[in-house]
Design a protein around this nucleic acid. Structure first.
Length: 1079
RNA sequence: GGCCCCGUGGCGAAACUGGCAGACGCAUGGGACUUAAAAUCCCUUGUCCCGCAAGGGACGUGUGGGUUCGAUUCCCACCGGGGCCACCA
């Protein structure tokens, strides 16, 4: 064990002690037993599971597909976090096998990726070599834990026989388009379809191409009228145009998009690989850069990825994270006319907004610096354009990294010199550019409504743009909004405001005071009706809020309280006052944008008026109007962006794509897969401002012919010179489908056979466990690929993972100095019980929980723990630490407790001197009863993944068995071993064989439980008097309420307690308790 | 800043649907065995108070309120810790 990982010296109960009886359960014995059974399992293929159609497959059993997130094999080997999830699934799988399931429990390695490449660069050893070595280490360690994986199904993403199919799936996506109107086989609308279908439909004239390249459906009799409104047909297009149309529809496409570019790593990164503007690996700065990259059209699946979250059993937090990442919002797209548009620019500017109801408040517009309008304006400036400033701003915005953007959220921007027309007000409004508007979302342009959007408000204040209020909240709405936002305020209270403060006091104390309230309300309403200025209203509200602390415990209930207070008045006509009160409105403007609910004001134009409508109604009305004018429509938008799939590095899957001299791309035919990763001796990244894929260094590989690359001769003549795609796929490629490959790991004809798929993947993976850090990466990408494969009929389930679970992080102890910095554990001394000092300074330190890290020297190496206690103890400890989903600190002191438990369990069953079984002929009924209860509870606890309490139950049983005479019979030892076997499989195999069995305990059925032994004949019920337990009565388990009542009231202590009281009520919960209410 | 999760002994925790708070383990103190130590086994241990003792009482699940016969559990607010997102119009 690593030194000083514990708050105190190592326990003396170390398993390494070889003294004592010859057959005592110690580290040596554990080691012997464990290695023996691991070899036995391997030799007997104990955990190899058959596929449908194979000899020995039992179709009558239900299937259980249990999946661990496969590890990324690093040079450091397993850390203690890996076996936590792996042990949990191992227990579950062993249990399910005993319960009669066909269990698929596979393991593999996610071995392509940046860390391996960087490690190789550091060490100068080729990543293929270091990765293979890491895999061997991982495999050896995993086997040493005795996990019941079916090793015959092991896969590694770097194996050409594996990535052949990764490339094949890529080509599937490449040759698929999304038809949003297609009826799916699951009844939904919208589906991925083979791109050949699209070509066929275009050729037949069922579809045409719209003005901006979009695919449109043409009714058969309507073809001519279609062409009349700018729709072109397939036969009208040149080959080049046809190719462009088709390439535009592919789910895998080359897109010119703003991507995350990391110069230091020399590659682009996906959105989930960028954390706080820095690369997830290495923490290097990431820039936004428009680049031509392979992209996946995951956005086509956004709605389905969102909707189907409802159909899967995942942690709700993970579902929420995915839903927020997908980021659906409803709003409208609106075209604003551009006045005197520059050449080459459409005469309108399209914006997206979720608040079309505020259009009358749109006093200016903003476009992203990357917006085409800006570029055109620089080329053809208007008189008011300040070219120098505009150009400088665009330059600066481009070079600003994400971190810089995030660090200073101060609004910046420049007027473009362009003006647009607000279609609702008919007013001329300026168009600005600013980097708070993002090109990647919506249309890259907004209508700015400073009165009702915080960002627009900030911008308008800074650049002195007009602010127009168009939403007033009703008094109640406003109160709630302001209370919740707890605004700052500066105004001095007006004279009459003190009456409102009184009102506040009234609300707080809730003492009637109806006359006072009525007077206040009348005063308030009079002032409103007499047209008091907005300022006085506002100030009143602000004062109210300044006393918000007094009503802090009523926050959120504000409206209810106000209304209740009105009801309490007992006025002649409270309904009228209440009505007036609710419908009073006030101005919101006070150093802030008002984004809460309310109704439209100042919103009447020549053609349309929204005045008086609530926000929702106003949205509907204005959208209808815009639609009728032909300048707007309802629109749903998503935050989700298409998935950047190219990486400019070496250690990844090559794309099965080549380019001809014109830059057209062609797929490598299936028969020519895999496209093997070429050997490279120099794979250091090229640090640059522009992407330079490393595979470009493999000249002979890159430059080839269509025939040699395996492009279909129908697409290109074999002798055509082509260059291969030199980007590689990201790490998430191989992990997006590995769970499918396990089902049929050695199939060379298909990525998975249909039989294996429909059996194992029926309803998806039954149980999937892994860390929550993959919530928006792997777990979203896998769902996307799976849905595409589903649409194409390649898989039968809509979702890959039916049930998902996240294990908690295993942390460690570290030591904190007075200044809150952490002191590495190897520089800490424990001078007395619980007192720690830093060796160098002698300063006191306090123990704290911290993440395991090399620098803190608090990393625990699983190999050391196994050497000291054995794998069974290790497994047991990690499961006993606490709830699986919780993060919990590793405390070596506690391991001894689990070790001692196994030792006692062993001693209970085996004579430590002779090694023989020490079963008794008879046993006590109590022990038998306890055994049944244990079996029942352990089974139930495994099902609900409460391994810690299952273990506690077994400890209780062993403790009871140890102190009982006679102890356990052979039959009881057998059933106890069966129960413990999922947790400590090696020890239990040994017990099982000592009982005379020649077969593995792993294939035995789970012991049965006699339900009658789970119930007691009589129960002891606590008797509470006024909520405190004062006595206990013992009654028959099936006693009626009357019997229980009589027994409770007859109890001596109860009588004594009730001596000077009278019984008001007796509450009886049969089997639970009695509560006597007395005065 | 927004959203989500979590706060129970000296420590890890248990209490599954609102019904005996602290199972089980660690650590602690005491004892048995031993020449001694280790290992092992037994007992003790939420806090405070009364009692020589047996025993008894009060308080107690981050804080303050609420609902209920009854709250670790449900509701509201606050405090503390962790996670995710963060100019998405």
């Amino acid at each position: 064990m690593t030194q000083n990982t514990t708050p105190s010296p190592r326990p003396d109960s170390s398993g390494g002690d070889a003294r004592g009886p010859q057959y005592r359960y110690n580290a040596q014995l554990a080691d012997t037993i464990e290695l023996k059974w691991q070899a036995w399992w391997d030799a007997h293929n104990t955990f190899v599971v058959k596929n449908p159609g194979e000899p020995g497959f039992d179709a009558s059993r239900p299937k259980f597909y249990c999946l661990d997130m496969f590890p990324y094999p690093s040079g450091a080997g397993l850390h203690v976090g890996h076996p936590e999830g792996y042990t949990a699934t191992d227990i579950l799988c062993r249990f399910k096998r005993m319960k009669g399931c066909n269990v698929l429990h596979p393991m593999g390695y996610d071995a392509f990726g940046l860390p391996a490449e960087q490690y190789a660069i550091q060490t100068g050893v080729h990543p293929a070599i270091t990765t293979k070595k890491s895999i061997e280490t991982f495999r050896r360690q995993l086997k040493r834990f005795g996990f019941c994986y079916d090793w015959s199904r092991e896969v590694a993403t770097i194996d050409p026989e594996y990535y052949k199919w990764t490339q094949w799936i890529f080509l599937k996506l490449y040759s698929t388009w999304y038809d949003p109107a297609f009826q799916r086989r699951d009844g939904g609308v919208g589906s991925g379809r083979p791109i050949t279908d699209l070509v066929g439909e275009l050729e037949r004239g069922v579809r045409g191409i719209g003005p901006s390249g979009e695919i449109v459906a043409l009714e058969s009799g309507n073809v001519l009228s279609g062409s009349a409104i700018g729709i072109r047909r397939w036969h009208e297009l040149s080959d080049r145009e046809r190719r462009a149309v088709i390439d535009d529809q592919r789910l895998a496409y080359i897109g010119e998009q703003t991507v995350n570019w990391c110069p230091k790593l020399g590659t682009v990164l996906a959105n989930d690989e960028v954390i706080d503007g820095k690369s997830e690996r290495g923490g290097y700065p990431v820039l936004r850069k428009p680049l031509r990259q392979w992209m996946f059209r995951i956005t086509a699946y956004a709605q389905r990825l969102l909707d189907d979250l409802d159909t899967i059993n995942w942690p709700s937090s993970t579902k929420t994270i995915q839903a927020e990442w997908i980021g659906r919002s409803e709003g409208a797209e609106i075209d604003f006319g551009i006045i005197d548009a520059p050449k080459g620019v459409e005469p309108f500017l399209r914006v997206y907004t979720t608040r079309p109801d505020t259009i009358f408040g749109a006093t200016y517009m903003v476009v992203a610096p990357e917006h085409p309008l800006v570029e055109q304006t620089l080329r053809h400036p208007r008189p008011e354009t300040n070219i120098t400033a505009l150009r400088a701003y665009v330059e600066q915005a481009r070079n600003r990294s994400d971190i810089e953007r995030q660090e200073s959220k101060v609004k910046t921007g420049v007027f473009t010199g362009i003006h647009a027309l607000n279609p609702a007000t008919g007013q001329k409004i300026p168009v600005w550019t600013a980097d708070y508007v993002l090109m990647g979302y919506g249309t890259g342009a907004i209508m700015a409504v400073p009165a009702h959007d915080e960002r627009d408000y900030e911008f308008a204040k800074k650049f002195d743009l007009p602010i127009r209020d168009v939403i007033y909240p009703r008094l109640v709405e406003g109160m709630r909004y302001y209370t919740e936002h707890n605004r700052d305020h500066e105004q001095q209270p007006e004279s009459w405001v003190s009456s409102l403060a009184d009102f506040l006091g009234l609300l707080t104390t809730r003492n009637a005071g109806s006359e006072q309230f009525a007077a206040i309300m009348a005063d308030v309403l009079r002032r409103r009706d007499e047209g008091e200025s907005a300022d006085s209203w506002e100030a009143a509200i602000d004062v109210l809020l300044s006393d918000a602390a007094a009503v802090s415990n009523r926050r959120g209930a504000t409206k209810a309280i106000w209304l209740e207070a009105i009801e309490d008045l007992g006025l002649d006509d409270p309904a009228d006052l209440r009505h007036r009160f609710e419908n009073a409105s006030f101005y919101a403007v006070s150093g802030n944008a008002y984004t809460g609910p309310g109704h439209a004001v100042n919103s009447a134009g020549n053609d349309v008026s929204l005045d008086g409508l609530g926000v929702d109604d106003a949205k509907q009305r204005i959208t209808q109007w815009l639609d009728a004018q032909g300048i707007g429509n309802r629109k749903v938008n998503f935050k989700l962006r298409d998935w950047t799939f190219s990486r400019q590095r070496y250690w990844g899957e090559p794309f099965p794509i080549v380019f001809d001299a014109h830059g057209n791309h062609y797929p490598v035919s299936d028969a020519a897969l895999p496209v093997r990763l070429p050997e490279l001796s120099d794979y250091a990244p090229i640090e640059s401002e522009d992407p330079l894929p490393l595979l470009g260094k493999a000249r002979d590989w890159m430059n080839t012919t269509a025939g040699a690359a395996g492009v279909s001769p129908d697409a290109l003549p074999p002798s055509t010179p082509v260059t291969r795609e030199t980007n590689t796929m990201p790490g998430s490629a191989g992990s997006s489908w590995y769970f499918l490959r396990y089902c049929d790991a050695h199939n060379s004809d298909r990525f998975i056979s249909r039989e294996a798929e429909s059996y194992w993947m029926d309803g998806g993976v039954d149980f999937y466990i892994g860390g929550s850090e993959h919530a928006v990466g792997h777990l979203l990408y896998s769902r996307f690929w799976h849905k595409v494969l589903y649409d194409l009929g390649e898989v039968s389930s809509r979702e890959p993972f039916a049930k998902l679970f996240h294990q908690g992080l295993i942390t460690s102890f570290s030591y904190q100095r007075a200044d809150k910095t952490l002191c590495p554990n190897d520089q800490v001394d424990e001078v007395s019980e619980g007192v720690y000092i830093e060796r160098a300074t002698g300063a006191k330190l306090s123990p704290v929980v911290a993440k395991m890290s090399k620098s803190l020297k608090n990393v625990v190496n699983p190999d050391d723990v196994i050497a000291e206690f054995g794998a069974d103890t290790f497994r047991l400890y990690e499961m006993y630490m606490g709830p699986l989903e919780q993060s919990k600190p590793w405390n070596p002191r506690d391991i001894a407790g689990c070790f001692r438990f196994l030792q006692r369990a062993w001693r209970l069953c085996v004579d430590e001197e002779t090694g023989n079984l020490r079963a008794t002929e008879t046993t006590s009924p109590d022990l038998e009863k306890l055994l049944h209860r244990m079996i029942h509870k352990v089974g139930a606890d495994i099902e609900r993944l409460a391994f810690n309490t299952a273990i506690a139950t077994m400890i209780e049983f062993v403790n009871a068995g140890t102190s009982a005479t006679p102890t356990l019979t052979r039959h009881q030892i057998g059933r106890f071993a069966l129960c413990l076997a999922p947790f400590a499989p090696h020890l239990c195999e040994e017990l099982w064989s000592k009982l005379g069995h020649a077969t593995s305990i792993a294939n035995e059925p789970w012991p049965s439980v006699d339900d009658s032994l789970l119930r007691d004949d009589s129960v002891e019920l606590p008797v509470q008097i006024a909520g405190k337990v004062r006595a206990r009565v013992t009654v028959a388990a099936n006693a009626t309420e009357e019997t229980i009542r009589a027994a409770a009231l007859a109890d001596e202590k109860v009588i004594a307690f009730l001596a000077d009281k009278s019984v008001q009520k007796v509450i009886i919960v049969p089997g639970k308790m009695v509560n006597i209410v007395a005065k």
